Simulated assay, not measured.
Amino acid sequence: MSTASISEAVAHANRKTPLAKRLASQWWRHLLGIIAVVFAAFPIVYILSASLASGGTLTGSNKLFSSVDLGNYSQLLSDPVRPYGKWYLNTVIIALVCAVATVFLGALAAYSFSRMRFKGRRGGLLALMLIQMFPQMLTVVAIFLLLTWLGDVYPVLGVGSRTALIMVYLGGALGANTYLMYGFFNTVPASLDEAARVDGAGHARIFFTIILPLVAPILAVVGLLSFIGTFTEYVVASVILGADPNTETLAVGLYQYVSTETSSNWGVFAAGAVLAALPPMILFLWLQKYIVSGLTGGAVK
């Protein structure tokens, strides 16, 4: 019996089974689904309510949407001392550049480890695995001292430079993302490469015209993870960028609204967080069809 016939038989049996009986046997699935939706949606609803509440504190948001006021958004966008628009632009540029560069450089490295055989290949793969064990936060002091020294020689790579921040992000992300893409590249049959070489194609042509289209799901996943990770990162950005409002990112800039007890304004902070969530959400919805296949495709090799 074909797969289509089996699917039709199962669908026919489900139609004949009473709805109440199906719910009685599968009620726990619906309960778990409802709990998961409530658990995931409550923080979003709460922060949206806080952004629309006046008063500048979170206590007024305990009753969700008890008041609707756009004053927090108006204050956020019109603050002359804290340029939210500049922070937004800086964050989007840094996140996009890191995402594109991570995907491109990681794909090149993954293709090399997957398709080429060279001295040090196994050691390089082992090094990538070991690098993933240590978070980038452990090297913040060393990175700061290194950039302080580099800034004296190359100011564009010194403390306070967005270019330096991008380089640090790339260095911390390439290890994990390269190994993730390496597993996916291994699922592409090597016979495709061999057929292309028979036709006279080199590594560059094989990589750009054959391999990249086939591994689009993992490229989308790596790009999305890189974008979200750099878009919301705070510790490294606060150390490297310093206190210049014109170079700060959203995470560093918004913290100023809640950094002191005397000048905390959680309403404005919530409004900024709501607006900051839009780019990752849009990108996630756009790449949603690639997420599952990209994360699981390299796990079966």
Rank of each mutant, 00 (worst) to 15 (best):
E233R: 06
A41W: 05
T230I: 09
L157Q: 04
R122Q: 09
N62F: 14
L31G: 10
T148Y: 14
S238L: 11
S238M: 01
V252A: 07
L70G: 07
V258N: 09
T57P: 06
A9S: 13
I228G: 10
W286P: 09
H12M: 12
F208D: 09
A40V: 12
N72R: 01
F231D: 07
S161A: 00
G294W: 01
A4L: 03
S54E: 12
L128Y: 00
L224S: 08
L170C: 10
N90Y: 01
S78E: 06
N62Q: 13
Y169F: 13
T209N: 15
N186G: 04
F144G: 03
L70P: 10
P213S: 06
L32T: 10
A11N: 12
Y290M: 10
T187F: 01
F284C: 05
L146T: 14
W87N: 07
V215D: 01
M281S: 13
L278V: 13
I211S: 03
A4W: 00
L125N: 03
P189W: 05
A53D: 15
T232M: 13
V221Q: 04
R205P: 09
C98N: 14
S25N: 13
D69T: 10
I240M: 03
T148R: 14
T17N: 07
L287Q: 06
I206V: 13
S293W: 07
F284V: 02
R82H: 11
